[in-house]
Design a protein around this nucleic acid. Structure first.
Lengths: 208, 208
DNA sequence: CGTTAACGTTCGTTATATAGAACACTAGTT
DNA sequence: AACTAGTGTTCTATATAACGAACGTTAACG
């Protein structure tokens, strides 16, 4: 008797085990602002292959997916996950810092600041396509968010307050409230976003 | 400026991304008492491929590894883990029941009983090669372990008490103490092991 | 304009992962 | 002993994943 449980082969004869792999890889790659060539360099995978993987035109080798997921600071399982329902992808870095990136590609938040300061100050590069909306849950109390708009035009809503900023302008608002950033311009909106956590002031070192 | 952090390509030029995959697959397959042919049927992967994968003679496709890991009730990441230090592999089933299986292949514990009773009674198939030792941490208080030796010869130590059993004999001992099973015979030892948890008696149902 | 550079795609070739058949090997049976 | 049924391995052919080069496109510059 070698049967065990009710597992069957006939479950799904020809399921594509990796329906979302391509999109996920591409999402992560863009979240890091990497081109195919750059990711190719960093991962060791030919850029043509990456291109095909992103369009689900190939069934990559474990080795290939492994190298890609390493270069993208994530795991094989993570890139295999089918998260079609998720609006935002939350990607845990090795350092524990999440990268938020909208699935439809409208908004993108990439960390650009030094990782060792992440408990004091977080520095993001923010790009939103027209109509893009980034909604954030509150950050820790006392957090202040600084936003310097490099190009485009956005509306920022923090709590009840809404303000508009054009290219070259800066905004500062409370990050410990639910807040929202909307690209109200016609082109892409590009901004530098800096989160200053309260711990920074009044405590020179965490003591660890 | 497309640089980001300090990720480098030169990290490891030609690392084998899957050094333990073969062993892990084989371990899991044996933990389920599956032959290559059986796993082939259940996973849809040709048994020749599984054979090659287990001996690390191929670099399987994501699809292949995915089908295998599914058939083995685990994830892709799980089979990729390099746990060379671990003496025992603890494999979480979907149902949450761990399977213990020694890495060197000396001992093997496979669940054979019905899964829905796992909180009351656990029923294992135990096989140990010569010199094989299975050490267990204490089970919940009140647990009694029943062991019926099908073939071979073993010593069981529970607490301070040590007893020997030959083929056809049965042992019963306290499972809530650290205990150890040693195959002292020349051939394989094969036993049926039944864990009876206290909840079974005095409570007809856990209420959930 | 043409030039350059960067992007993602497609092409041509090579390497190899896959499946199925054939193969040894063992153990149990008559 | 021969006959089975099981194991895991090795064959052979085919499909295709991988790479690097060439390509079309776009954008920024002179």
């Amino acid at each position: 008797m070698s049967m065990r449980g009710g597992r069957k082969t006939t479950e799904s004869p020809q399921v594509d085990p990796t329906p979302a792999l391509g999109k996920t890889i591409q999402r992560l790659r863009k979240a890091y602002n990497l081109s195919l060539g750059e990711l190719s360099e960093q991962s060791g995978v030919a850029k043509s292959i990456i291109s095909q993987i992103e369009r689900n035109e190939t069934n990559p080798t474990i080795s290939t997916v492994y190298r890609l997921s390493r270069a993208l600071d994530t795991t094989v399982d993570e890139v295999l996950k089918i998260d079609g329902s998720q609006v935002f992808l939350e990607h845990q870095l090795k350092s524990g810092i999440p990268i938020l990136e909208s699935q439809d590609g409208l908004c993108r938040l990439a960390i650009t600041g030094p990782l060792n300061l992440v408990n004091h100050i977080q520095w993001y590069d923010f790009i939103a396509k027209p109509m893009g909306v980034l909604e954030s849950d509150p950050h820790p109390p006392g957090t202040v968010e600084h936003l310097y708009l490099l190009s485009g035009q956005i509306d920022v809503t923090a709590g009840d307050d809404t303000r508009r900023a054009k290219a070259g302008e800066a905004l500062r608002f409370r990050g410990d409230l639910p807040h929202k950033i909307v690209n109200v311009g016609e082109g892409d909106a590009h901004a530098t976003m800096i989160l200053v956590l309260r711990q920074l002031s009044g405590n020179e070192a965490t003591g660890k």
